[in-house]
């Protein structure tokens, strides 16, 4: 996923009845983090307080919540703007309906990731955790330099134990299967 992809206009075509999945909002309201999505009355506090919305022409948390409530499953999950949230949790703390907006966005991202719609950076981080226990590949130079800086050795982690605990995690099947793409 590139920068130009995220600035692409979201799908503003008129909504067709066939695109609507009326059960989507109920499905979301049973998931950890998006339980309270039905409470949203579109006041717009989330968008007006969102630091990303201030600079992005396309990212609007209120719009995402409304699309999810309407059941526009594919439009939401295929939308690149979903990935712009900086997870600062300002919307969550200020929502008058206590919706945990950032967590709803996170649930939607998880669903998008399960179907393979995910920026490459996240696949790289997941792969790195499986390999080393760290989300970034820490350069050998850095590890060696610690000694000269008077720092204790970097925790080696235990990738084998990590992989054992992560057995059966859906997203990882995706990383292994589709890791080559994008």
């Amino acid at each position: 996923m590139t920068e130009t992809a995220t600035t692409k206009e979201p799908n503003r075509e008129p909504i067709k009845a066939s695109e609507i999945d009326p059960k989507f909002k109920y499905e979301l309201s049973r998931m950890h983090g998006s339980e309270k999505i039905l409470r949203c009355f579109q006041c717009g506090t989330c968008t007006s307080d969102c630091p990303v919305a201030r600079y992005s022409e396309t990212y609007r948390p209120r719009t995402i919540i409304r699309m999810a409530q309407l059941g526009l499953r594919d439009r939401v999950l295929n939308s690149d703007t979903l990935w712009l949230c900086a997870a600062c949790f300002t919307c969550t703390d200020r929502c008058p309906q206590d919706i945990e907006v950032a967590s709803v966005i996170r649930v939607l991202r998880n669903l998008a990731a399960e179907k393979g719609c995910v920026p490459i950076v996240f696949k790289e981080q997941a792969a790195s955790v499986l390999e080393s226990g760290y989300a970034y590949k820490i350069p050998d130079l850095r590890i060696k330099k610690r000694e000269t800086q008077g720092l204790p050795p970097l925790p080696k982690g235990n990738p084998e134990s990590i992989r054992k605990t992560l057995k059966g995690v859906k997203f990882l099947e995706n990383v292994e299967k589709k890791g080559e793409q994008q």
């Binding site: 996170r106 991202r109 990731a113 226990g133 760290y134 925790p155 995690v169």
Partner: peptide
């Protein structure tokens, strides 16, 4: 020091809450 610690998990929350 704790040699067995791994990533806290936060960077992967967007793609897998479970992970």
């Amino acid at each position: 020091e704790m040699p067995e610690f791994n990533c806290c998990g936060l960077p992967l929350d967007p793609v897998s809450h479970e992970m």
